[in-house]
Write a protein that binds this DNA or RNA. Sequence first.
DNA 1: GTCCGTGCTGTGAACGCGCTGAGGACACCG
DNA 2: CGGTGTCCTCAGCGCGTTCACAGCACGGAC
Lengths: 216, 216
Amino acid sequence: MLVVEDEARLAAALQRGLQAEGFAVDVAATGPAGLDAARHGGYDAMVLDVMLPGLSGYELVRRLRAEQHWLPVLMLSAKDGEYDQADGLDCGADDYLTKPFSYVVLLARLRALLRRGAPERPTVLAVGDLRLDPARRRVTRADAEVALTAREFALLDYLMRRPGQVVSKVELLDHVWDASLETAPNAVEVYVGYLRRKLGRDRLETVRGAGYRLAT
Amino acid sequence: MLVVEDEARLAAALQRGLQAEGFAVDVAATGPAGLDAARHGGYDAMVLDVMLPGLSGYELVRRLRAEQHWLPVLMLSAKDGEYDQADGLDCGADDYLTKPFSYVVLLARLRALLRRGAPERPTVLAVGDLRLDPARRRVTRADAEVALTAREFALLDYLMRRPGQVVSKVELLDHVWDASLETAPNAVEVYVGYLRRKLGRDRLETVRGAGYRLAT
DNA sequence: GTCCGTGCTGTGAACGCGCTGAGGACACCG
DNA sequence: CGGTGTCCTCAGCGCGTTCACAGCACGGAC
C-alpha cells in the first residue's frame, strides 16, 4: 500500500493505522516521489492526497494511467465541491474521499478497491500436449502433472518460448544458468537428459553441433 | 444500467438523467425485483438504494455476490453513518453515496466503476474449506475459527488472493512485510511453518527454489 | 573398417534450500 | 514490575538439487 501525503502527521497516522490492519505501507511526501514510487513499487493500491508539492494528485493519476499503470487509487482531498470530486474520478482515480474522513470508511473503501484489483491471468505456454504455466509453476503433459526441479523448469520455460527454434548450449548457459563461465556446457546436456526422461524421449531434438530444438 | 429504487420520482429522475448520458436504463422498484433483474439482465452496473421493500440493498448485494455475480454496484442511502457505509461496502458494494447526492458526482463515480469493469473477487476469500474475511478479520477452516496473529493473517490473505500461484519469498517480503531489506527471508519460512501448523500441513506447498503455493 | 568429435548418462559428492526449536527483543496489560 | 503474546533472528540439520567427471555410444569423414 502506498500513501502519498505531504502533511507529516496525517501521513504517519495513516501509515500506523493501515499497518495495524496488516498492510505493508510506504509513504511518499511529494508528487514526483509518489509518482515514482507508484511506477516502480509494485503496490496493490494507493491513497493519494490531491494537494501535493511538485505535482498535484490529479496530474499524478493522469500520468500514471497514461503510462498504463492501473493500480487502484483512492483520492483524498479537502475540496468537497462536486466538480472537484468528478474531476478527480475522471482523471482516473477509483474513489474519492473528502477530508475530514472517517477512518472506518477509508478502510472499507480500500477493501472494496482491493477486492476489484485483478491481475490479469498470466499466459500459459503450450506446445503440442505440453503446457507450462509460469505463474502456477506447473507443467503438464497430456493433462498429467510433471514434477520439475527449478533448473529443469527454467530450461523448459526458455525452450517453450522458442518452439521449433534451435537454441545453442551457450545461449542456454547465458539465460538459464546465471554464470555461464563457471558452468560446463555438459550441464546443459545433463538437464536435457533429465527433461527427456520426464517429458518423453522425442520432445527435445538434438541438432548436432548447433544446439537443441523443442519439437512442435 | 440497472436502477433499483422505490421512490418513483427519484427513480424516474435517475432514469432520465442516465439515459441522457447514453446509458440504457431499466428500473426495479422492490428488492426481489431488483435481485432478479440483476441476476438475469446482463447489466454493466447497478445503482442500488438501501431502503427497499421486500429486501434491503445490503442483503441484495450479499446474495448477488454469493451467487457469483460481480457487476459493479453503487449503493445509495440516506444513512450517512460511517458504519452504514462500511457495512454496505463490506457486503460487496463497490461504492456508496449518501442522499442527497450530487448528480455530477454520481455520474463520475459510475464512470469510474465502469472503467474498472466487473470485480472478480468476493468480499470473503474462499479456497477449499478455508475462508478469510478481510473486514471481520476472521479465518475459518471447515467452519471452525482459526486464531491468527496479524502477520499470519496478512500472509494468508496475500496467498489467498493468488490461489494456486507460486509466490516468491521476495514478493512476500515486499508485500506482507514492510521493509524487505531489513527482514531475512527466513522469516517467511518461519511464518509459513506457523500457518501450516494451524491450517494443516498440506495447505501450503513449497516449490523449491521458487516460493510457496496455496493448494486449491 | 578406423579415427575423431560430439553428445549421453550413471555415479557420487558438495552445496544450499527450506524446516524447526530455542530464545531474545519488544509491546501491551494487569 | 512480571506475565503474556508476537515478531523475528539464529544455528543446526536433513535432504533434494545441482553439477563435475568419466566412460560409453554414435555419427560423420576418410
